[in-house]
Nucleic acid binder design. Structure first.
Lengths: 156, 156
DNA sequence: TTTAATTAGGACTTTATTATCTTAATTTAA
DNA sequence: TTAAATTAAGATAATAAAGTCCTAATTAAA
């Protein structure tokens, strides 16, 4: 909806790392298993995140990846942009008109502009520290409902 | 963003017909030219819209298509659903978690639920009559700014 | 020093979407 | 009645996204 599958996987992986908060690198295979992401595909996405300094990779035995900086300084929109590329220079009209702006709005422009701005704010407001905290809370809440362990909170 | 390119073309075509408001059928080629839609592709999309009774096709010489019912009874979401298919039974979590609901929200759930509802309302609120009226207003406004004729309001 | 474990990266495959090509069916006009 | 103009529909092609396979490079452990 808001980003590609690749970006979705990237967000999941970043949240996993933030939640795990491990000083040691975490293997791609572990992350892939936790979120049921195709491992080789996630490896490709990780390469992109490394190039954008959102991840640091440690190669070789005992290697893996870790966050490129403090989770409180990593925001969702940065992850999305790294993977999906920068947004278009000019905002796209929702019904595909060439001329559509605040001055010359298409019929949906005013409603859509507001919604688009909210989406932007949502992705720019949330950092990994906060998200990880909420995932942990979610795990605890689900455990009380009888779901077992880590996996239960995210994957069936 | 909210629907496929096919659905976008469908919306454009439906608005064109509502705006033109012609008792006689309008040729696919005319609509395609107006919005720079690949003609054969639009023909395929039109077939889908006909099957969903959103369009009526008149075959043969002097043929074309016209709206399947009054433009005030055709809503954007109906066009989108016809072309893109029905939405998933269960609302999809924005970060792809299997367990995500109002009771067990993912970290973005509450913000995203509100936005998703707004999108739904937007697409369900707007009918073709209203949209066509606004496009006509837009044409008039642009004409006063020196843009020539019909095309100017939608395509360069 | 060799082997095993890991990420990096190139090439390929699969799937879905978008687009085109060709012919059939239909209808009106000449 | 024939020809022209139109939508219908099947087959194919092009493109992009998602996913897989294989080997190289790197590193630590045995």
């Amino acid at each position: 909806m808001l980003y590609t599958k690749s970006a979705e996987y990237a967000i999941q992986a970043m949240i996993y790392l933030a939640e795990k908060n491990s000083p040691k690198p975490v293997m791609i295979s572990e992350i892939a298993a936790a979120y049921e992401i195709p491992q080789q595909f996630l490896a490709k996405i990780a390469q992109i995140l490394v190039r954008h300094r959102l991840l640091i990779a440690i190669r070789g035995r005992n290697g893996g990846v870790k966050l490129g900086r403090s989770p409180k300084d990593i925001y969702i929109h940065q992850v999305v942009e790294a993977v999906d590329g920068p947004p278009p220079e000019q905002e796209q009209c929702i019904i595909g008109l060439d001329y559509c702006s605040d001055e010359q709005p298409c019929p949906l422009h005013n409603k859509w502009s507001v919604i688009r701005e909210q989406i932007k704010e949502m992705l720019e407001a949330e950092n990994l520290e906060h998200l990880a905290k909420r995932v942990i809370e979610k795990r605890l809440a689900m455990r009380e409902l009888g779901f077992d362990d880590l996996i239960g909170a995210v994957k069936k």
